[in-house]
Design a protein around this nucleic acid. Sequence first.
RNA 1: GGCCCCAUCGUCUAGAGGCCUAGGACAUCGGAUUUUCAGUCCGAGUACAGGGGUUCGAAUCCCCUUGGGGUCACCA
Length: 523
Amino acid sequence: MTVPVRTRFAPSPTGYMHIGGMRTALFCWLWARHNAGTFILRIDDTDQQRHVEEALEPIFRAFRWLGLNWDEGPDIGGPFGPYYQSQRSHLYKDAVEKLLAAGFAYRDFDTPEQIAADRQAAEAAKQNYVTIRRSLELSPQQQADLTGQGKPSVVRLLVPRDKKVAVDDAVRGHVEWDCALMPDPVLMRSDGSFLYNFATVVDDAQMQITHIIRAEEHLTNTAVQALLHDALGNPRPVFAHIPFITAPGSNKKLSKRDLQKLKNSPALKKMFDRADEILPQLGWGDSSTLNPVMVEYYERLGYLPAGILNALSRLGWSLDDKTEHLSLDTVIQNFTLDRIVKAPAGFDPEKLQSYQAYWMNQLPLEEKIAGCDKYLQRRQEVAVTNTPIDRQYLGRLITMLGERLRVFSDILDYPEFFLPAGAALTYDEKAFQQRLVTATEAPGLLKKVAELITVAEPFDAPTLDKTVHDFVVAEGIKIGQIVHALRIAVTGKAVGAGLFETLALLGRETCVERINATLARCG
RNA sequence: GGCCCCAUCGUCUAGAGGCCUAGGACAUCGGAUUUUCAGUCCGAGUACAGGGGUUCGAAUCCCCUUGGGGUCACCA
C-alpha cells in the first residue's frame, strides 16, 4: 500500500508570479496529478507583509489562467490548515518546545554581534565556522535566570556533529553533508518568530507532504531540513531538486533583479519591445510594469496556456527523443521525476514562440475569434471608440492572416481592417516612397487598375486575381509593378496577407476609397 | 574561500556499455513555392569540456583536472 502523493508549492506574496516559480509549481502539480494525489498551495508569509491579499492575487491569477488547480490552499482551506504560515505559529511553537525538551535544540544567549565576531574570527583563521555553543554550558538555572532578566535568546538546532546527513534526492541521487561543518541553524528568533527553514519542515510534516519538489537552490537547505525531520521524529519526505531556469544567453538564475541585464539579451529585448508596443494600447502598463519574467506578461499579451505549459514542461523534462508538442494531459500521464534533467535549463523565448505558434494553430477558429475579439474590444474601451466588430469578418481576417497570428494581441497589428469608413490609413513611409514615388509609373497604373476593380464582379479574391493579372498582360508590365503599390494603397503597408484576399475582405467601397486617397497623396 | 550541485549542437533535449560515423526540436544558413511577409516543403552546418583509467568495446562506469552554478543570515 503506497501513501497517496501530496505535493505543495509555497509562494511568498511578492505581487507577481515568476515564470521560473511557475515551472516549479507546474512540476509539483504534475507529480500530484500523475499520481492522482493532492496538490497544496501554502503561503509563505512569515514576513508579515501588510497587503498579503493583494500581493497574492497575481499568483492565484497565474495558476487559474494556466488551469493549475489546487486541492488545498488559503482560499479553499483543507484538512491541514490554515494555509498561511503567518497563522501557524502555534505549530512551530509546539515543535520548538518538543525539540528543546528532547535536547535536540537549545537556547542561545549569544548576541548577533558575538556570533558575527565568531564568524569573522573563524574566517580570519581560515577555518570553517561552526557555532561556538557557549550557552550550552549554562545550567538550566542560569538559563532561567537570564531569561528572567529579559536577556534575549534564540533557539538553535543542536547539530549532531559526529554524523553525516544523507539524502537520496529523486533527481540528484545520493547527496551527503558532513554535520561537523554545519553551524547550528536558528529555529526561533529572539522576538519569538520563526525561520523559514524551520517552519517549512513543520508544515511539510503536518501537511503530510510526501514529495518536496523545489528548485535546486534549496539543495543546501535540505541538510538542515532532513536533520530537523529526524529530530522531530517525522518520516522524511522525498526530496526532488529540479534545476533552476537561467536567463537567455546566461548561465545564471533567471531573476527579476537582473532585469536591466535581461534587456541586453536580443531575444528578450524583442519581448520587452513588444510589451511597449501592445500593452499601452490596452491600458495595461508597459514593459516597466510587465516583463517576460512574470507570468502575467504572457497572459496579458494573449499567449495560450497550452503554449506556456508546453514550453515550461520541456524545460528540464522530456517525454522521449522526439516529442515536442505536448498537451497537459499527455504530460500528466507521462511525467516522472526520473526524467527530470539535472543541469540548469536556459529560458529560450524563441522556442516559447514556436510552441505558442503551434498551439495557436491548433485552436479552432471560433476560439481564435473570441480571443482576438477580446483584444479588439479592450483597445476600443481604452481608446473610447466603438466601432462594431463583425465576428464573421474577424473570422475571415484571422483565417487570412494564418500563422502571422501567434498570440491574440497580434491582431492589434492590423488596425487597417478595423478603421471606421473614411478614416485615413497610416502609411509605411519608406515603402510608400519606394513603390509610389520612386516608381513614377505606379500612380498611373494604380489609377487604371482602380477602374477595373470598381467594376469587378463578383468582388472576390479569384476575380480580383484574374482582373489584375489580365491588366498586367494588357499593359505589358510585370506583376511586381502594380501589386506592391496596390497593397500600400489599401493597407498602407508593404507586407501582409495575400493581396487579393485582402482586397476582397476590405470590400469594393473601401478599396476604391483608399486607392483614391493614396492617389491624392501622391499628388 | 568552505560545502554542495552540474557538464552532449548557439539553445531545449534523446542517450542508463555495443542500436551513435550521436537522434529530435528551436534558432541559423541555403534552395523551392509565392505579389510581399509569415508559413509550408526540401537541404546544410554545428555538440559528447580535457586527461587518465575499467572494458573486447565508453557520450554512457570510476578518478583527476578544468569550467560553470548554487549556498553559506535572528531572508524566503
